[in-house]
Amino acid sequence: MTLNHRLRVPDEVAIRKIDNDTVLLNLQTGTYFGLDAVGSRLLELLEQNGELAAAHRAMLEEFDVAPEILEADLLRLSQEMSAKGLLEPLN
């Protein structure tokens, strides 16, 4: 996976935002997943247009983090969520 990927939350995933956290449930597999404030922000940005690169740019403005570290974190999280059926390629 690279920042050029576009991702979306599949229809069969329920999302609940509670305070700064987000909890996702894949209704087909019963898999639950919790996101902290940073993960929740990524999901929020992906829900806007699905572009990982755009999410990376926006989060660089918002968080005090080196670009390469943020990129690695976003890709790792996106891969993990994709493997659990909580994200899928857009189009």
Partner: peptide
């Protein structure tokens, strides 16, 4: 936190039919 509690507690909820999507959504 509520999110941590939700993840922790949801696995302790009894569920007869883990394939019933509308039930899972209600339970969530």
């Amino acid at each position: 936190s509520p999110g941590q509690a939700m993840i922790a507690l949801v696995k302790f909820a009894y569920n007869l039919d883990v394939k019933d999507v509308s039930f899972l959504r209600r339970q969530f």
